[in-house]
């Protein structure tokens, strides 16, 4: 099984005036060709920064401090900016959270699509336009030829996200990073987009990193799941295994918070407390202040351990399968 992406020990820190924010702190995972990885966590857990680190768009005061991002064997952290630019939108594409904000409001759809084609392929404008039209058709936009000359504000949110997806698919990339692309959409549209992306990824052999805070999205879409908390991956494994019997108390808490999984009338479980500030985070397990299994031993950094075949978690007191 060939790996599209392998992230090893990635640390992305933000050097603010108030101190260092360790947004991503020692994150490792890999994505095989054609597979879907769900990157799950609350807001501020570092999942989006991980995505931006991979595509090389971490803006100052943030920067990748250490670690490797191997994309088809090449370390992206060492790549010159110009070579990185040639990969972006071409071999690695990204879809953003808010479709209302991702398209430039003053440029027509065709301009924004054609420029993407021309940035990476030596083709004529007509050819580029034809590719743009085909891509729009592929993501299910009716009468794509006419819609090409429209402005973004003439589209609904769902349609705009389809345009963004079409742009991401223009060069049939090896990897798409989708940063909560359905959170801003209606539930019905969400479902359509999910199905569409799943189909397209399968057809083109594209690997997918799906960043979300919504476990129910991951359940139906991903092959593997990595749960992030306070800049670290706390649990990693096959999606069904993790959801059925989480090892890390935080994962268990997340699953418990999903309303649909609880019986009607039963009290919704919740994780007490708040996500800690990443600024000057003390050492040790970041979850221990909210964890009912915490002990003094948790004040030392728990290492990532393989607790079952293909199952990793960063916890000293992991849940036993029966407890979940």
């Amino acid at each position: 099984m060939s790996l599209t992406l392998e992230v090893r020990g990635l640390r992305t820190h933000f050097f603010t005036r108030a101190g260092v924010v360790k947004a991503v702190d020692d994150v490792s995972f890999s994505v095989a060709r054609g597979r879907v990885l769900g990157l799950v966590g609350e807001s501020g857990s570092g999942k989006s920064v991980t995505g931006f680190s991979i595509i090389g768009l971490v803006d100052p005061p943030g920067r990748i401090v250490s670690g490797e991002i191997l994309f088809r064997g090449r370390d992206l952290t060492r790549l010159p900016e110009e070579e990185m630019r040639q990969l972006r939108g071409n071999r690695i594409a990204m879809i953003f959270q808010d479709p209302m904000m991702t398209l430039n409001p003053v440029l027509r759809i065709d301009t924004q699509m054609i420029e993407t084609v021309l940035a990476h392929a030596k083709v004529s404008r007509e050819e580029a336009r034809a590719r743009a039209r085909d891509a729009l058709g592929m993501v299910g936009i009716p009468s794509p030829e006419e819609r090409l000359s429209a402005y973004p504000h003439q589209f609904s949110g769902g349609m705009r996200q389809r345009v963004a997806i079409a742009i991401a698919l223009l060069h049939r990339p090896d990897l798409i990073i989708a940063d909560e692309p359905t959170t801003a959409l209606d539930v019905t549209i969400q479902g359509q987009i999910l199905a569409e992306v799943q189909k397209l990824a399968a057809e083109t052999g594209t690997s997918l990193i799906w960043i979300t805070h919504d476990l129910s999205v991951v359940a139906g879409l991903a092959d593997e799941i990595a749960v992030m908390y306070a800049g670290k991956v706390v649990e990693h494994g096959e999606v069904s295994a993790v959801l059925d019997s989480p090892l890390h108390p935080y994962t268990a808490g997340l699953i418990g918070s999903v309303p649909s999984r609880n019986a009607r009338g039963a009290r919704l479980k919740q994780i007490p407390g708040m996500t800690p500030s990443l600024l000057n985070l003390p050492p040790g397990c970041a979850f221990r202040s909210r964890c009912d299994r915490a002990s003094p031993a948790c004040e030392a950094d728990p290492p990532m351990r393989e607790l079952a075949p293909g199952r990793n978690a960063r916890c000293i007191h992991p849940l036993l399968p029966a407890e979940a």
């Binding site: 040639q86 972006r88 939108g89 409001p105």
Partner: peptide, 16 residues
């Protein structure tokens, strides 16, 4: 703005 970041994510040249 996201649209600028998206434009960069599309691999456009900084000049464009």
């Amino acid at each position: 703005m996201d649209y600028v970041k998206f434009a960069r994510a599309k691999g456009l040249s900084p000049r464009r």
